[in-house]
Amino acid sequence: MNIARRILVATIGVVVSASLHAQRVSLHGYVNQAYAVSDEHPIFGIPTDGTTDYRDLALQFRYDQDRKNTFVLQLRHQRLGTSAATPDDVELDWAFYQRNVSDRFALKLGRIPLPLGIFNEADGAAMTSPFFRPPHELYDRQYTSKTLEGILLSSSLGDAAGWSFDVDGYFGQWALDRWNRDLELDARNAIGAQVWANSPLPGVRAGAGAYRCDVESPAGVPNDYLMLHASVEADLDRWRFASEYLRGNLDTYGRYRAWYVQAGLQVTEQVSVHARGAVARIETPINGHSLDAPLSEDLAISLNYAIHPALLLKLEGHTNDGLLREDVPRNLYDSPSRTRYLIASVVASF
């Protein structure tokens, strides 16, 4: 934490001094405030009696010193109701330096958004997702991370009119959540890559990636995680479609699999409807045999209303069958239970 605070103070210093060159400084942010309520069980921090203590805010400072050098800092405040996974105060989300070696090649150093699939870097920011959050099943922070502390190399290949490819490679570390949420696990020596193929049809792309890392365990012997992921996305303006798959070999912890399909239709200029089905399963060795537990099956629909291009209302209903209820300790032998929850949110960005 001390290191994070020092980076924060140093970067704020850079940004403040940079304000002398205001045309090179850009400030962006979003406010995502929700009311959420669940029925049978609390889930994702949503209590059965409802809460408005459900929000996600971010403020981003970007200083483009010149064409080659950029500094980016993002502060984030997140509250997810009764969930113990979110802190009360403002956290340093990112702080990184970017060196643009050329138009096609860049290097980032520091605390960086981790390139993993469609939604990982932006998470639920602003208008990037038609739901309050991207599918938890795929972006579960017990298996993946939003950020990387390390180095990221990015390259863009191809031409403006045809196919193009965005390639990322990275090395570093991050912290994972644990099931009981009272302790973080560190993932170290992470090395990975991701490739996006952008088709000549704007908005249509496919990607794949992989990473491996050493995850510490309470027993002291690190587990070797190997994660593979694949994505396809088509934003055709009126129609929007996204689907992703994640498969993780968790060493002695077993195997994790998650996938989802999401589709949306822009009904009018302001109104859109979306549906999503997401599944997560964990296969773990217990007492000499393998247990395939249905962690989560989440079906959701969402109605979006854009008051303004930068102001959006979302109303979404979910039915979740699985083991993610938060009023009982998680037990993979339990039968899955059904929880319905509703989130009404307003998001504004600038």
């Binding site: 980016v72 993002q74 990184f96 970017q98 870097e121 932006a122």
Partner: peptide, 23 residues
């Protein structure tokens, strides 16, 4: 030029902004 609505372009930029990839 893009063959898309302004809303699409705003979504495109929001994703880049909040991925730290551009403004």
């Amino acid at each position: 030029i893009h063959g898309k609505s302004v809303a699409y372009v705003i979504r495109y930029w929001q994703r880049l902004i909040f991925s730290g990839r551009g403004v």
